[in-house]
Amino acid sequence: MTHVAETVAHPVAVPGGALVLAGRPIRPEARLEETSRYADDAWSLTPAWLRADRKSLRLDFGALPAALMDTAKRLFYALLMQDTPSGEQPISISSTRTYFSCVRRFLLWAHARGRTLAQVTGDDLDAYHRELVGLRLSISGVLRHRRAVRMLWAYRSRLPDHLGQDPLRRPSWQAWARANPRRPGENLTDRIPEHVMGPLLTWALRWVDDFADDVLAARAERDAIDARPPSAPDPLSALRSLLDDFRRRQQPLPAAPAWVAPGRRRPEAFVNFPYLARLAGYPRHRFDKVRPRRLIDEAARDLGVDTDSPLAHTMQARLDGRPWLERISYYDVARFERLLHVSCWIVIANLSGMRVPRSSTCSAGRWRAGCRGGARPRSRSAAVR
């Protein structure tokens, strides 16, 4: 089937001083009159990024040939102003930046073949689609590129140069859509198999219910050490008091991880000077002198050196009747925090119904019962993998 290009009235020119974010809410600290204007070669979208995290977003039209710049600007001005044709949906600020990359790719592809958008034929659209599919993108990635190309048809009344036919009417585009159906709002990621998800949720619940208190207590102790004020009027007195405490408890001095003192080799442990300084409430360089080092070396000869820098917190959670860990190192707190965060997300995603199991016989209730009952992990070491 041959599609003849429609006659579309030439769009009204956009003034160079037009504010491109005038149709969007902006951050409270931003001033609209200081935001990007249509004539700028790069438009900053950051003032319209309303999430708490600060993210720099911009549309850089300078990478496009001059012949394509006005077409690209007209399209994205319409998107930002939410001037959407019938049947099109407005898109968010972050999606606008994503579609800009997709549109730029197609514009450069057509320009490399010496064609304006109006000169792009159906065969050209088919060739571009084959190239997209050949990139082995995800389904959602191909869909983004397909939608970006179609925008150059859907927004034709806003553009000085536009496609002459609807790409979605091409047989090859339709065939791909039939072979890759997508239901609106459907998560296309395959479910994790239930024989994998069951043990994963079991351990996630174990972390949340049992191990979390120990991890949070370790984090609180680490934070208190980092914020500890000086324990004596001068560093030498603070160090003597600290080493006397180690002698009183007959506790070996803490050992530093390999990255604290590069060049040292194991198995011989070396004293963790930075950690001792934190315990005394002073910066490390105050102990990096002859007298403090002599006191530390004497204590190391008397007490020995540990294999790590353990925190004082005593593990409360039990695994097979014994503590699930002997102790937590000062340097391992962040790793255990990440494991706890991941466990929380696994529990939330499954038990809130965000991803309902495919089989009704394997429910969140059964998983929780397995965790509470006999489906306990058998290995103590597995708890910290």
Rank of each mutant, 00 (worst) to 15 (best):
P167Q: 03
L117P: 06
H129N: 02
W173T: 14
R144E: 14
R178V: 13
A112G: 13
P171G: 00
G114N: 03
A218F: 01
W173Q: 05
Q119R: 10
R115K: 14
L188P: 01
D210H: 09
L137D: 12
A175P: 14
I139P: 09
D124I: 01
D190R: 15
D213K: 04
D223R: 12
S231Y: 06
L188Y: 00
I139K: 10
R222T: 05
P160I: 12
L163S: 01
S172V: 13
S157H: 13
D161K: 03
T189H: 11
A118C: 07
V120D: 02
L137F: 06
R240N: 05
G164S: 08
V120K: 03
A175S: 14
P181C: 04
P230L: 10
L137T: 03
R147T: 15
D123E: 15
R240H: 12
S241P: 14
P184W: 08
R219G: 09
W173L: 11
A212E: 15
L163Y: 06
D213W: 04
L201A: 08
P193V: 14
L163G: 01
E194L: 13
P230A: 06
L201Y: 04
H162L: 11
R147G: 13
T189Y: 15
L201W: 10
W207R: 06
E194H: 05
P167I: 00
H129V: 15
V120I: 05
W173N: 03
V149M: 05
L205R: 05
A224K: 04
A218M: 01
A175I: 15
S140Y: 09
A148R: 07
L135I: 08
Q174R: 10
D223P: 04
S172Q: 15
R113I: 14
A224G: 06
M197V: 08
P193C: 03
